[in-house]
Design a protein around this nucleic acid. Sequence first.
DNA 1: GTAATTGCAAATGGTTTGCAGCATC
DNA 2: GATGCTGCAAACCATTTGCAATTAC
Lengths: 152, 152
Amino acid sequence: MKSPETVKQTEERLAQMLAKIKGRDFRLTPQRWAILNILAASEDHPSVDEIFKEVRNRFPTTSIATVYKTIALLKELNEVLELGFPDGSNRYDGHRTYPHPHAICTNCGKIMDPEISSVDELSEEMRKKTGYTFSFHRLDFFGLCPECQRKS
Amino acid sequence: MKSPETVKQTEERLAQMLAKIKGRDFRLTPQRWAILNILAASEDHPSVDEIFKEVRNRFPTTSIATVYKTIALLKELNEVLELGFPDGSNRYDGHRTYPHPHAICTNCGKIMDPEISSVDELSEEMRKKTGYTFSFHRLDFFGLCPECQRKS
DNA sequence: GTAATTGCAAATGGTTTGCAGCATC
DNA sequence: GATGCTGCAAACCATTTGCAATTAC
């Protein structure tokens, strides 16, 4: 059961995505609309495969290539944050599209992203010591979620 | 030209790797020794391909599979830190094998890892807010290195 | 001599691409 | 009606794997 706030958030995210889509020559196909919806509504951080399976529930002929292409488009438009992992288990955040820290369960894959005091000081320290100018970052903490702690 | 301290560091790292290797039934082949050497000596963060090419300078018959297998072994022994990237451009740190922040140039790929005040407080904050227990983390800042800033 | 390692080639698997047909605008 | 999108299948490509021959111990 979703709270009214959650529903509202989902609608706002969807509206913003649609605005970006319509801002150019992009077309809104049913498959594409479904993918936007899934990303705007998902509380967790779905994988390509999870998105694919969910789209297929509604449009059984959808191909995985379409999912990849739509995600690529959303990445370009900055409307989704890709959490790529070297093993290929990539995950997508349709809510917060800017860099932010993640807590990742190495057992079940659950990802949480609480509001946290920023990493700006660390970034500034790195800048001073390296001379780099940074445009984004990635901060992931890996371990066991509460549920998986209980099981082990 | 390497400083005496650097040479000493390299020797220490190599000694430690060798100790770990000999601690079990592992054998020290010339190819393996070469790879250990490269990782212990490298100032930057070499890719598999860079390691492969360097090993081939000394042992032209070496196969890429051997490089992968040796790296896998060193990972198991905790004697190398793998910096995996989703695009497959993985890099290896033979010096500091524990998690630490990196500054990564998105233009030329140069990686720096200065000593920095720890991320322990952030980790603790995440723990409190998520209930996760963390065993490692990954912190990368992406941007332009000083040299690439000048060029652009 | 025994067991680990090498090197080759084939397999793997997530992602990308080319393109003909189709659907949106 | 023009152009962008879909879906299929083939291509990609770093990494892994199986296995016979080799080599460290």
